[in-house]
């Protein structure tokens, strides 16, 4: 007998890779404005399970962010705001 479908407690929106959905978006280390979306305020790279990126694009993104860090376009570690 088939078990009745259990109701999920949390309804999660299915995440889609932004770069797959919109091919006009490009990943480039020279463009920190786009890359900033995928880092926390602290400057950490947001994981795939949170951002919903596909493996391929996450890989490219990580590489781009690391390059941008090397050339001081993005921070390795940013300080949090103090109120």
């Amino acid at each position: 007998m088939a078990r009745p479908k259990r109701k999920r407690r949390l309804f999660r929106r299915r995440k889609v890779c932004r770069f797959c959905a919109d091919t006009s978006l490009s990943i480039d280390y020279k463009d920190p404005r786009t890359l900033r979306f995928f880092t926390t305020e602290r400057g950490k790279i947001i994981p795939r399970r949170v951002s919903g990126n596909c493996a391929k694009h996450q890989r490219e993104l990580t590489r781009a962010i690391k390059r941008a860090r090397t050339i001081a376009l993005m921070p390795y570690a940013a300080t949090l705001r103090h109120y």
Partner: peptide
């Protein structure tokens, strides 16, 4: 451009590609 972190005590830098 503003540097994301200090390099040799500089906070700004002139970028060339």
């Amino acid at each position: 451009k503003r540097l994301a972190y200090e390099i040799k005590k500089h906070t700004r830098g002139y970028y060339v590609l």
